[in-house]
Deep mutational scan, measured.
Amino acid sequence: EYSEEELKTHISKGTLGKFTVPMLKEACRAYGLKSGLKKQELLEALTKHFQD
């Protein structure tokens, strides 16, 4: 599980793409985000969540 700060850091540095799909799905579930099946959809959901 990833902390909010850790995820925000990866988003701001542009390194969230280094996460694997299972890692991204886990992060989306942890924050109650609707997650797609594609890596890009997962990245967009997390990025949008933490930028709002």
Results as ranks from 00 to 15, higher is better:
Tyr2Cys: 05
Glu41Ala: 07
His49Ile: 03
Glu5Asn: 08
Ser12Cys: 11
Leu16Trp: 01
Arg29Ser: 11
Gln40Asp: 15
Ala45Thr: 14
Lys39Thr: 02
Glu4Asn: 05
Lys48Arg: 12
Val21Tyr: 15
Ser35Trp: 03
Thr9Asp: 13
Cys28Leu: 07
Val21Glu: 11
Leu43Lys: 04
Ser12Phe: 12
Phe50Tyr: 05
Lys39Val: 03
Leu16Val: 06
Glu1Pro: 01
Glu26Ala: 12
Glu41Ser: 05
Tyr31Met: 13
Glu41Cys: 07
His10Gly: 04
Leu7Val: 04
His10Met: 12
Leu37Phe: 09
Cys28Asp: 01
Lys8Cys: 12
Gly14Trp: 02
Leu16Tyr: 01
Glu26Gly: 10
Leu16His: 03
Lys38Ser: 10
His49Trp: 05
Leu46His: 00
Gln40Val: 12
Glu5Ala: 12
Ala27Gly: 00
Gly32Val: 00
Val21Ala: 06
Lys38His: 10
Glu5Trp: 08
Glu6Trp: 12
Glu5Thr: 12
Leu7Ile: 01
Ile11Thr: 04
Ser3Tyr: 09
Gly32Asp: 07
Asp52Phe: 02
Gln51Trp: 02
Lys38Glu: 14
Arg29Leu: 09
Glu44His: 09
His10Pro: 01
Ser12Gln: 15
Gly17Asp: 15
Phe50Trp: 05
Gln40Leu: 06
Phe19Glu: 06
Leu33Trp: 00
Ala45Trp: 02
Thr15Asn: 14
Gln40Arg: 11
Lys38Ile: 07
Lys48Asp: 13
His10Ser: 09
Tyr2Trp: 10
Phe50His: 01
Met23Thr: 14
Leu43Ser: 04
Glu26Trp: 05
Leu43Asn: 05
Leu33His: 01
Gln51Ser: 14
Tyr2His: 06
Ser12Tyr: 11
Lys48Cys: 11
His10Phe: 10
Gly14Pro: 03
Glu41Phe: 03
Leu24Lys: 00
Phe19Cys: 14
Glu26Leu: 09
Tyr2Ala: 04
Glu4Lys: 09
Thr20Cys: 04
Glu5Lys: 10
Thr9His: 11
Lys34Leu: 06
Lys39Pro: 05
Gly32Cys: 04
Ala27Met: 14
Tyr31Ile: 08
His49Phe: 15
Ala45Cys: 11
Leu46Val: 07
Leu7Asp: 01
Lys25Phe: 08
Gly14Ala: 04
Glu26Tyr: 05
Arg29Ala: 14
Glu44Leu: 09
His10Thr: 03
Ser3Ala: 03
Pro22Lys: 15
Leu7His: 02
Lys13Ser: 08
Thr47Val: 07
Leu33Val: 13
Ile11Val: 10
Leu33Thr: 00
Glu41Thr: 03
